[in-house]
Computed example of a mutant assay.
Amino acid sequence: MNAPRQITWNGWHVPFIAPWSRETPRVGTIVRAPRGAGIAYADELDAADRRNGTLWVRCPVLRGVGKPNLAGVHPLRQRQAMSHMLCQVCAKSTYDEAFNRWGGRHLFLVRADKGQAIREGETTATPPTCEPCAAESIRACPELRKGYTAALVERPQPWGVAGTLYDPRTLRPMPAPDTRDGLTFVNYEDPQLPWTLAARDVVTLLGCTTVDLDHLAAHDTTV
């Protein structure tokens, strides 16, 4: 896909995956799937409601309309960025010149306490970032200014989704108290997957090498 136009707000680029105020998720009526093995929308007709059999949250696509929520994540655009390895900020492919310079690796930049590196096999719902956007993000993003870590990753592999689990008996959403955004990570092999309303794609990071962004800016090919 071609990268969409860049949108700025208060002098900074608005991340591609950030939702806007007119993109409030639509709350559909959750019912038991026809065969009883999972959840469905009562008015589910559009194939866009599902991906690989998993039900996804509905959200309008009105990028640039209203005000950006820089701390939020738009479900569809996050999924596009993760599926195609697009930069979460500018939406350009991370299969770029830097990818080749880094020996066929993607740059992942995530919020972390100081000194906490990305672990081998770690799961994340944060899409990759290109080199220029990573440099801007650590200056512009309030969350990253609190602490971040970066790694070059050889193999970001599909792992599952992050979403809201529904109780198979009551069809009520189940709390996820240990997560910052209230979402539960569910593996594709997990029997709870049919009872999950997905909101993020999740990958597992394999072949991780922790990096210093200053070294990357200096075009260090020995990382």
Rank of each mutant, 00 (worst) to 15 (best):
P158W: 11
R155N: 02
L165I: 15
N2K: 07
G115D: 07
V161I: 06
V186K: 15
E189W: 15
R51T: 11
G64I: 04
H84K: 13
P158D: 11
P132N: 00
E23R: 02
T196N: 03
C208S: 03
V31R: 07
A135F: 11
P173S: 12
N52Q: 01
W159N: 07
V57M: 10
R26Y: 12
V211H: 06
A3H: 06
A47K: 12
E131M: 10
R51I: 12
P25V: 02
R169L: 08
H13W: 04
A117P: 08
R155V: 04
A40F: 01
A176H: 10
D190A: 13
T221G: 07
P127W: 02
V14P: 00
Q88V: 00
V211M: 04
L206H: 12
R58Y: 02
V14E: 01
R101T: 12
D190C: 11
P128V: 09
P15Y: 01
L45H: 11
H13Y: 01
R79I: 08
C133R: 00
T196M: 06
Y95W: 02
Q80C: 10
L107V: 08
W195Q: 13
T179W: 04
D212W: 01
P127R: 11
Y166P: 14
L197S: 09
T126F: 05
Y148P: 12
P34I: 04
C87I: 05
Y95Q: 01
R180I: 08
V65E: 08
R26C: 09
V89Y: 10
M1C: 06
P158R: 13
Q78F: 00
L62P: 00
D220L: 04
T164F: 07
Y188E: 11
R105V: 00
A33I: 01
T126R: 06
T204A: 12
V186D: 03
A47I: 15
V153C: 01
W20V: 03
W56N: 06
L86I: 04
L109M: 09
D46T: 14
G38D: 13
C87G: 04
M174C: 15
A33K: 02
R26L: 14
T221V: 12
M85W: 08
A135V: 07
E131Q: 08
P60R: 02
T8M: 14
C208T: 09
C141A: 13
A162W: 06
E154N: 10
A91W: 02
G103L: 09
D212S: 05
V153D: 05
D167G: 11
S137L: 07
A37T: 03
T210M: 08
A37E: 04
A47M: 14
R145N: 15
Q157H: 15
T24R: 11
R26M: 10
W12E: 14
E97A: 14
Y166L: 14
L55T: 12
L152Q: 05
P15V: 03
W9A: 14
F108C: 05
L183I: 05
D46I: 14
F99K: 00
